Amino acid sequence: MTFKLIINGKTLKGETTTEAVDAATAEKVFKQYANDNGLDGEWTYDDATKTFTITE
């Protein structure tokens, strides 16, 4: 399955995708991506669209 991450950061904005077997796996990938890029914010997830959002 394809999951999307929408980034609404103070300095970084955009989106990225990952292929994962489930939402929990995708969340780990996206949280590592956010950590690697210095993002810290509030996370939301929409199961209907398989989309995570981080807002700083």
Rank of each mutant, 00 (worst) to 15 (best):
Q32S: 08
L5D: 01
T25A: 12
Q32R: 07
T16D: 05
K4G: 04
I54Y: 04
A23S: 13
T16K: 14
G41I: 02
K13I: 14
T11K: 14
A48P: 06
T17R: 11
M1G: 11
F52I: 02
K31Q: 13
D36S: 09
A26T: 01
D36N: 09
A20C: 05
G14T: 15
L5F: 07
M1F: 07
G41V: 03
L5G: 01
E42M: 11
Y33S: 02
G14H: 10
T55F: 09
M1P: 13
K13F: 14
T44P: 00
N35D: 14
D40F: 10
K28H: 15
F3R: 00
L5Q: 00
N8L: 13
V21I: 07
E56M: 05
E56D: 10
T17I: 09
T17N: 13
K50A: 15
E56Y: 08
E15V: 04
A20F: 04
T2R: 12
M1N: 14
T11D: 15
F3M: 01
N35Y: 11
K28W: 13
Q32T: 12
E15A: 04
D40W: 06
G14L: 09
T17Q: 12
E42P: 05
K4R: 11
G9W: 10
T51D: 01
E42C: 05
T11M: 11
K28P: 03
K10M: 15
W43N: 00
N37A: 14
D46Y: 05
M1Q: 11
G38K: 15
A34E: 02
I6V: 11
K28L: 15
V21W: 13
E27K: 10
D47N: 13
T16L: 12
I7A: 04
N8W: 07
L12T: 07
T2P: 09
I7L: 15
E27F: 11
N8P: 03
T18K: 03
T51L: 04
F52K: 00
F30V: 01
L5S: 00
G38V: 06
K31R: 08
W43F: 10
K4T: 13
D40G: 10
V29S: 11
D22P: 01
N8K: 11
V21G: 15
D22Q: 03
E27R: 11
E15L: 02
T11W: 10
T17D: 09
A34D: 00
T55M: 10
T53W: 06
V29R: 06
T49D: 05
L5Y: 01
A23Q: 07
T11P: 06
I7H: 07
V29P: 01
A24N: 10
A24I: 12
F52Q: 00
F52D: 00
K28Q: 10
N8V: 15
D47S: 15
D47P: 13
L5N: 01
F3E: 00
V21D: 12
G41H: 02
I6Q: 06
Q32A: 09
K50Q: 07
T18R: 08
I6C: 04
M1H: 09
A34V: 15
D36T: 09
T49K: 06
M1I: 10
D46E: 08
G9F: 14
Y45L: 02
D46V: 14
F3D: 00
K50Y: 12
A20D: 03
G9D: 05
T51N: 03
E19Q: 11
G38L: 15
W43P: 02
I6W: 07
L5R: 00
D46A: 06
T11R: 04
G41K: 01
T11C: 05
D46T: 07
Y45V: 02
A26W: 01
A34W: 03
D46G: 02
A23N: 06
I7S: 04
T18N: 04
G14F: 15
D36L: 14
Y33F: 13
L39I: 10
A48N: 08
I6H: 07
T16C: 05
D47T: 13
L5V: 03
V29E: 10
A48F: 11
K28N: 06
K50H: 13
A34M: 08
K50L: 15
T51S: 12
D40H: 10
K10I: 13
A34N: 02
T51H: 03
Q32L: 13
T44E: 07
D36P: 01
D22H: 05
E56H: 04
I7V: 09
G14C: 04
T25Y: 09
E56I: 06
F3Y: 11
A34G: 04
F3I: 01
K28T: 15
N37M: 08
K10E: 09
I7G: 02
E15Q: 05
F52W: 10
K50D: 03
L39A: 05
T25S: 09
T18C: 05
F52G: 00
K4H: 15
T25L: 12
I7Y: 15
K13G: 12
Y33L: 13
